[in-house]
Simulated assay, not measured.
Amino acid sequence: MPDPSPRPAPPRPGLPRHLAAIVYDALLLAGVLMCAQLVPFTIGIAVYGLDAFRDFRNPLVGHPLNETWLVLVSFAFYGGFWVHGGQTLGLRAWKLRVQAEDGGGVGWWPALLRFLCGALWLAPAVYLHKVLGVGVWPSLGAGLGCLLLTVLTRLHERYSGTVLVRAAARPR
């Protein structure tokens, strides 16, 4: 007979812990993206020749295929960890886990929605810098403000049907 009493909700992480996991994962993602950039760089050398890359002229900067590649690698990084275990390395370090609202695992579709909603903070930073010509630091500041707002309102959780919870301690 199933237990009729509702289970208590798992504890939610505080803002400092959540932001620390974001910073940790962002540093790891930067390394992953640097390695992933070797693929288009190698293809670019084959297509454009090595002379196109001399004197800090990179024909791949702003190229739609290159940008798409980096977004796909970023999603593979986050989505892969969320779908397979619910924890990126940053989440594991800060003892957090992403799970479905019902406590189950996260599928690829909710992971994609979480990724896209979580990445919305980049829009103001990119728009201010590339379209309006605002400096890098003010644009980045506006983007980080939007990231903080996204985390505080849990926008990515509401639209993806996922929650970030404190991970239960594993028995030794």
Rank of each mutant, 00 (worst) to 15 (best):
L29D: 00
P124W: 01
S5A: 15
V83P: 09
V134W: 07
L38V: 10
V23N: 12
R172W: 13
G107N: 10
L33T: 11
R97N: 12
A168E: 14
R172Q: 15
P10C: 05
V163W: 09
Y78Q: 08
G105E: 12
K95S: 14
G105R: 06
D102K: 01
N58T: 04
V39W: 00
W109R: 14
R154T: 06
R97H: 14
P40S: 06
G143K: 01
P171E: 15
L147C: 04
A52D: 03
H156S: 13
A168T: 09
R158D: 00
L128Q: 01
H63A: 15
T68M: 13
N58M: 03
W109H: 06
R57I: 03
L152A: 14
Y48L: 02
V126P: 06
A52F: 04
A52C: 11
A100V: 04
L33C: 08
L28C: 10
V134R: 02
G49P: 02
A100S: 13
A119M: 11
F81P: 00
G49N: 05
V163T: 09
L91C: 12
T150G: 12
A142L: 11
A111Q: 05
P11E: 13
G79I: 03
P13C: 10
P8F: 00
G90E: 02
W109I: 15
V32D: 00
Q37G: 15
L116R: 01
L29E: 02
R17S: 14
L112I: 13
D3N: 10
R172N: 11
L140G: 11
G103K: 06
Y159E: 08
R17N: 08
L70R: 13
L113V: 12
L15V: 11
V47H: 11
A168S: 13
W82A: 07
L15A: 10
A76T: 07
M34P: 01
D25R: 13
G104S: 14
A9H: 11
E101D: 13
R17Q: 15
L120W: 01
A30D: 05
V83I: 10
P110C: 10
R7P: 13
A111M: 04
T162G: 03
L152Y: 05
F115P: 00
A119I: 03
W82C: 10
R12W: 09
